[in-house]
C-alpha cells in the first residue's frame, strides 16, 4: 500500500507517518529515507529530533537527497517497507542541486518517476509531503517554480497513492480513501 501524508510545518505529519508505517510493517524491514541535508545548526537539530523520535523503532536510515530510486541499491532482498521524509526536500534538492536550476517539468518527472520506481520494490510505502501552498505570499521566480513543481508532484503522487492523509494539529484526516482504488 502507498500512503501520501501531507501537512504544514509543525503539523505533526512526521509522527503520524511513523505511526502509519509501524502499523503496516510488522515483521517486515523498515527503511527511513532521509532527503534532508544537514547544512546548518537548525537542520542538524531537526534531523536529530526526528532521529530521537525514531529511536528504538528498528528503522534502517538511508540518506538519499537526490535520485530517490537509488535508495533501492542499499536495501536488502525480501519484503520491505519505507518512509520517505520528505518530498519538499527531495524536490528542492532535485531543483537546485549543484548550484544550478532545473525546470519544474524536469524536476516533477525526476521526483515522481524516482518515487514510482522505488515504490515497485516496496510492500508498503509512506511518503511525507508538505503543504507549501497557502501563505498567500508572491515569491520570486525560482521559488514560484518550486511551489509549482511541488503542486504537480503532490497531485501525481496522490493519484498513485492508495490513501492520502492530511495532518492538521497532529490529527490525521483521510482525504483519499483506500476504497476509492480503481
Amino acid at each position: 500500500m502507498t500512503v501520501l501524508m501531507i501537512g504544514g510545518s509543525g503539523s505533526g505529519k512526521s509522527a503520524c507517518a511513523e505511526e502509519y508505517l509501524l502499523a503496516l510493517s510488522a515483521g517486515k524491514k523498515k527503511y527511513y529515507l532521509a532527503a534532508m541535508q544537514a547544512y546548518d545548526e537548525e537542520s542538524r537539530a531537526r534531523i536529530e529530533r526526528h532521529r530521537k523520535m525514531r529511536a528504538g523503532k528498528d528503522f534502517i536510515t538511508i540518506e538519499q537527497p537526490v535520485r530517490i530510486q537509488d535508495a533501492a541499491l542499499y536495501m536488502e532482498a525480501g519484503e520491505k517497507t519505507a518512509l520517505l521524509e520528505c518530498v519538499s526536500n527531495l524536490t528542492a534538492n532535485e531543483m537546485f542541486a549543484g548550484g544550478g536550476r532545473r525546470t519544474k517539468e524536469a524536476v516533477t518527472e525526476a521526483v515522481v518517476n524516482g518515487i514510482a520506481r522505488l515504490g515497485e520494490k516496496l510492500t508498503h510505502f509512506v511518503i511525507v509531503s508538505n503543504n507549501v501552498f497557502e501563505d498567500g505570499v508572491v515569491y520570486d521566480e525560482a521559488t514560484t517554480a518550486y511551489i509549482c513543481a511541488m503542486g504537480r508532484i503532490n497531485q501525481r503522487l496522490a493519484a498513485m497513492a492508495d490513501e492520502v492523509v492530511e495532518v492538521v494539529a497532529g490529527i490525521p484526516i483521510m482525504i483519499k480513501d483506500g476504497s476509492d482504488r480503481r
Binding site: 504544514g8 510545518s9 503539523s11 537548525e42 503543504n131 507549501v132 497557502e134 515569491y139 511551489i147
Partner: peptide, 12 residues
C-alpha cells in the same frame, strides 16, 4: 490560524 502551510521562511 493555520500558519504552517507555506514556504519555510528565510528568517530564523
Amino acid at each position: 490560524d493555520e500558519v504552517g502551510n507555506g514556504i519555510v521562511p528565510v528568517e530564523a
